[in-house]
């Protein structure tokens, strides 16, 4: 695919046809300027977005096909930013999903102009951001890591995590606690105790036993 080079890499480039779109007023955290581009928005060197309101799409279903055709094979990451502003959206979204899949476009839905604007500015702002934030092992403080682990168990909430850690101390001690110990904690009903105990003591591999024997 041929890439369209951006001249000023700091701002979102906006197609003139977007003039009057309320979404523009919600692009606040990054600068934007009008420019002569094929897409509606260019939010990165190789990233572009088409904007579509479902309300408009319902009246002019052919519009988006024309735009996609114009886009050709340009850009590496092509986004269709769709504003869900009708209640009966299922059929439209179903059609758009198929169109996007066949044309190598990533569909992103937003439910308000604010949200759509936020997506555009985030795409620009994060253009060079490494994906560390969504990769594994985000460092946090001890409590949030502990909360994250223990709330994997159904029905355990943050109050329970505080109860557990203030009653037993370390995670190791929490794991070693007997069901009786657990059920004497305030707020721990039989179901919660059972789930906790099972999570710690149930074998990881279910049919390991048979394999060994």
């Amino acid at each position: 695919p041929t890439l369209q080079r951006s001249r000023s890499s700091n701002s979102v480039l906006v197609n003139r046809c977007q003039e009057g779109n309320t979404v523009l007023s919600h692009i606040r955290n990054v600068p934007w300027e009008y420019s002569d581009i094929i897409a509606d928005y260019q939010v990165g060197q190789t990233t572009c977005a088409l904007f579509l309101s479902l309300k408009y799409h319902r009246i002019h279903p052919e519009y988006i096909h024309t735009r996609i055709k114009q886009l050709g094979q340009h850009y590496l990451l092509r986004i269709l930013l769709c504003l869900v502003d009708i209640a009966d959206h299922q059929q439209s979204i179903r059609d758009l999903t198929r169109v996007c899949l066949y044309n190598n476009i990533t569909l992103v839905l937003s439910w308000s102009p604010e949200e759509a604007g936020r997506y555009l500015e985030t795409f620009k702002a994060y253009e060079h951001k490494p994906p560390d934030l969504i990769k594994e092992r985000i460092e946090g403080d001890y409590l949030s890591k502990l909360t994250d682990s223990l709330t994997q168990i159904k029905s355990v909430n943050k109050t329970d995590v505080v109860t557990l850690t203030s009653t037993f101390g370390s995670l190791q001690k929490i794991i070693q606690a007997s069901p009786d110990d657990l059920s004497s904690c305030p707020g721990f009903g039989q179901q919660k105790v059972r789930r906790l105990y099972e999570a710690f003591n149930q074998p990881f591999v279910l049919n390991k036993r048979q394999k060994k024997s």
């Binding site: 979204i93 999903t97 990533t106 936020r118 997506y119 985030t122 795409f123 994060y126 969504i134």
Partner: peptide, 19 residues
Amino acid sequence: GSRLTLLVLSFPKLRIIWS
């Protein structure tokens, strides 16, 4: 939303179905 954006940026091939 920000994290989803980051995911889309990291995987340009990734398609999303909203259901």
